[in-house]
Every structure is written in structure tokens, then in C-alpha cells.
Simulated scan of single mutants.
Amino acid sequence: MAKRKTGIEWLLVPRNNSINHILKYKDKVLIDFYNKFTKNHIDANHKAVLWAYYNYLLNDIPNKTKNIYELNKSLSSIYFAMSNYRIKHEKTIDTRLKQLAIDSELKSIFPLESYKMEVVVITKNNCCSYCDSFKNNAFNYEYAMNNEIVDVSKCQNKIRGFVGTLGYRPKRDSNGHLIEVDDFISSNSTIKKKSSLKKLSVGCLYVFLFIMAINTIIIIYHMI
């Protein structure tokens, strides 16, 4: 029978510390933190070290990100990881951490100057009536930025609580056409620039699909 991993060996298992991969931190950062933390906290086990490491990341990540959107995306990932930690190791649903995660993710969505945008909430299938209410629903970007569109405390899932993420996409009119921003159109009225808008719209759709795919993979990974 294989010996159960503990200490730094346990921490370096990708499944136990996926946050390093998400934030693109090298293992050396975690190893150095482990050595320093356990030196000052002799009785700390690997799980206590991981929780302390999450808090270290919250303070360190602002120095590693390039802009406010990237920062909020990283903060969202850390809060999600902390929430999953409490569920897995403490059997506790921490709605505060879940709300911080979803709020930070919302702030990570940057506006595009060419098209009106809308935000969608992607939730676990058949979670509860509250989460199901987001299906086939979208919020105007401006509304989403100024209102709490997700209240995780309303999720009725008693095992994991709210499990979801956010996505965004160009908004379409009743005919299925992308809605361009009026100010952008008036200042970019040449045929050449209108052509570039069409190319950009295709790019936006691909970006949206890519973000949805990545976020869904991350959610599934944490649920395993």
C-alpha cells in the first residue's frame, strides 16, 4: 500500500494545489513559503500551510498582475480555491468567499469599445431553482457592473453551495445582429474600419467561447 503523502509532497500534488497552475506560479514559490512558514509554525500540517499560502497569494498577486481586470480575475481564482478548501477539508460552505469570488470575476470583465456587451451566469446543471433561473438569461454589461447580479446565499445546494462562473459576449438585436456602440460608429465611419469591426466581432465570439470553455473546465476540476 502506497504511503500517504504529507507535508510539501502533498502540497506539490497538482490536484491539491491547482491554484499555482492557474496563477502560473512556480513550485519554488510554494516550497519557499512552506519552508519559511513551518519554521515559524512547527506544528502546522500541510493543510494549514495551504490555507496560509492562499492568504499569502492574496497579498502577493497585486504585484504580479498588469491591470485591474487581470488582478480581479486572479483574486477570483484564489477566493474560489479558498471556498473549495473549506468545503473539502472543513465541510463548510463559506458564502462570503463564494461571493467575493463571483464579485471579483465580474470586475475582471473588461468592456469592448466597439460592441455592446452582455454578461451571462453559467451554473451547474440542475443545481437548484435559483441557479436554474440564470439559464437563457443575460444582463446588460452596464447593469451587471453596477448591481449584484448573483447572490450566492440564495443557492439552495446544501453540499457545495453555489457553483458557477461568468461569461460575456457581444449583445445582439432581435434580428441576431451584433449591436455596435453609437460613439464608436460615429468616430469610425470609413468602410475600412467597418470591415475591421466585422473581423473583431468574430474574434469576440471566439474569445467568449474560449473563456466559457476554460472556466467550465476549472469548475469541473474543482468539483472532482
Rank of each mutant, 00 (worst) to 15 (best):
L112G: 04
N16P: 00
L57V: 11
F134E: 06
I87L: 10
E180L: 09
D60F: 07
Y56Q: 09
G161R: 03
V181C: 14
L106N: 06
P170H: 05
I109C: 05
C127F: 00
C128Y: 02
L100Y: 11
E113W: 01
I224N: 12
L50D: 02
N137I: 13
N147W: 01
M145W: 02
A48W: 01
I179K: 06
T216Q: 05
E180M: 09
I102G: 08
N63G: 04
I31N: 01
L58V: 11
P111N: 11
P170N: 14
Q99G: 11
C155Q: 08
L12S: 10
E113H: 03
I19S: 07
S189A: 08
R15C: 02
H21T: 14
V13Q: 13
K198C: 10
S114P: 00
K64M: 05
D43N: 13
I102C: 09
S114A: 13
L75M: 12
E113S: 11
L58Q: 09
M145E: 04
Q156E: 15
S74H: 14
I109F: 14
S153K: 15
E9H: 12
I31Q: 06
D60S: 13
F80H: 05
N136R: 14
N16Q: 04
L166E: 08
K193Y: 00
F208M: 15
S174L: 10
G167P: 02
S174Y: 08
V181Y: 00
Q156T: 05
E118Y: 05
V120D: 02
